[in-house]
Design a protein around this nucleic acid. Structure first.
Lengths: 342, 342
DNA sequence: CTGAAAGCGCTAACAA
DNA sequence: TTGTTAGCGCTTTCAG
């Protein structure tokens, strides 16, 4: 059992024969405290190695000054960068951040969101798991007036603030780029059907095609299964090849999938970009490491984090009452995997 | 101002005309509560959408059931994987985990470690920042009897539990492998001098050389500056080349550096592995994506996390009193970047 | 089986 | 400028 034989305000109050309140005030430089008393108190605090007890503070103030963050996975560059953005602004505003992973599991997501609720976070920022369809565990927050901001992956059936990137536009841009590069038979490797991003990117893909008068071919819309990992891309690409389908360009829902695709293509001696151009989404660090370097849509991850916490703090501070939906744009970073002029 | 018009135990106690204590007991299935009372209480709790207030719980129990984790960066696969290992076991044991980044900054590390102290974490797991030389902020924990476990990067001047991998052995193995592949002029790209891992790996490097009768050449011990990023490796490699030094193998302190080196080598039309073999350390996902695929030492990140939390919980539960130092071994994963039989 | 009461460490009116 | 007091929501003896 951990023991805290910490010095408390009472301890130093007794020692100095003053009251708790005086100590409390002196420690926060309250103006109405005598110079000598304050000094004496602060000195003794230092000597006793006093550290404020945040738990007690939170209980009495009914505010923990912490905000909760739930992400599907920490081990994705995208998410950890978003978190950095969140932390940066949070710390500046005197907030702590509790980070949790849902591990892409609905069940886990429910558990951590309840834990966070019980921990009385002042607000929540979340990107939902791949499995999540029910949002009751988030609606509890609303019923208790704890503000929520979703980023990237949102719950469709909730009226809350959100920060997303324009998936439709991003996909459109990517496909348009491929078309302008002279590609005509463009496949799309899609993500798990439940995710909104999957839908939006498919739409952008289709609309770009039709905008350029290219008929949509169902065979070129490839399902990568339930995962967004490299293996899913690899396998889906191999299946495609096995089925005798050979596009001249591929737009993948995300970089790992794109890279899986590239690996399979290369293994099958398909030249990139000469035979097949590839474009990913997210611009993870690996995009610059694969060969050829992968064209991708840059998601402003840090900015997404900053924006999320900004919206959240606005709500916490009562400035915003109506949910605000911010949409950022993803910019296409063209690299060798999709440019014919190599 | 966030408002919690939450139902509390008192609310449901009043409604049912019983006492707070009874509610408290009923909610935790305390045996000494009548079946009907318990049922009634639990039903009403559900109806009121009651959620326990962890803050109050923590204050009265003097234990938060949370453990703090401080890592230099979240956006490294290695660290986020360690965290997953920590979380897994922590959750199973009923502990929450608060994750913080020091962002490789000493100042930030001090701040977050104090914040965590004030938040009354029951224990701390940390991998120190690159800048950290002073460990006073951790010694406070010891003085307050809050157990600490270091992993990977430890404070040399503290008597605490730690989980590390055998850097010396890993480095030795890597270099030995290169020697057996017929390499003789083996360079080592070292890390920031302050880090213990830098020292240990250099030792392993040197000892492997001497074990095989290869004299140590100072010119082949390359300093990569203060960073462990790809750019540092790239630049250091270019400098080396510019100075006319051309080894036939390179052992890099970590994968990003190794990859930076590879990029530079390829840019200078140096063939890998024919002219120069390369081995990294850490086995990050990119190792399998670069071309040729990078040989690397696999750090059992998940296991490191599990072991850390295990040691910590032992201390929290009072089972361990003397610090325990666990050393795990890194295994060499040989890939194309260092095997001549390609 | 249930209740009363004290206490965890801190804040914040309200007094003095 | 400082003290008094009540209270935050829950746990936990000690009684009944």
């Amino acid at each position: 059992m951990t023991e805290y034989k910490d010095a408390t305000m009472l301890d130093i109050a007794r020692e100095l024969k003053v009251s708790k309140s005086t100590v409390s005030r002196a420690l926060k430089d309250h103006p109405s405290i005598g110079k000598k008393t304050r000094q004496a108190i602060q000195d003794l605090a230092k000597k006793y190695n006093y550290h404020p007890n945040n738990i007690a503070y939170s209980l009495s103030k009914k505010s923990t000054k912490t905000i909760g963050v739930i992400v599907p996975m920490l081990s994705h560059y995208y998410f950890s960068t978003v978190i950095s953005g969140i932390e940066e602004l949070a710390y500046k505003s005197g907030y702590k951040v509790i980070i949790c992973q849902s591990a892409e599991s609905y069940e886990r997501e429910v558990i951590v969101s309840q834990a966070l609720l019980s921990s009385k976070v002042d607000g929540l920022i979340v990107s939902i798991s791949r499995e999540t369809v029910n949002s009751d565990h988030f609606k509890v927050y609303q019923s208790k007036n704890v503000p929520i901001v979703f980023f990237d992956r949102v719950c469709a059936d909730m009226e809350v603030s959100s920060v997303t990137i324009d998936d439709y536009q991003g996909a459109f841009t990517a496909v348009e780029h491929l078309i302008r590069e002279g590609r005509r038979k463009i496949a799309h490797f899609a993500g798990p059907p439940l995710l909104q991003i999957t839908q939006k990117r498919i739409e952008g893909y289709k609309d770009a095609l039709s905008a350029y008068g290219i008929p949509f071919d169902e065979n070129l819309l490839i399902d990568c299964g339930s995962g967004l990992e490299q293996e899913n891309g690899s396998m889906a690409a191999q299946e495609m090849l096995d089925r005798g389908i050979k596009p001249d360009a591929i737009f993948a829902i995300c970089d790992p999938i794109a890279i899986g695709v590239m690996v399979t293509l290369k293994r099958n001696h398909v030249n990139i970009p000469d035979e097949v151009a590839v474009v990913g989404f997210c611009d993870e660090p690996i995009a610059r490491v694969v060969e050829p370097q992968l064209s991708s849509l840059v998601q402003p991850a840090f900015k997404i984090g900053e924006t999320s916490i900004e919206l959240l703090l606005n709500q916490i501070n009562g400035q915003d009452h109506i949910p605000e939906k911010r949409v950022l744009t993803a910019e296409l970073q063209i690299r060798d995997s999709s440019s014919s002029t190599i």
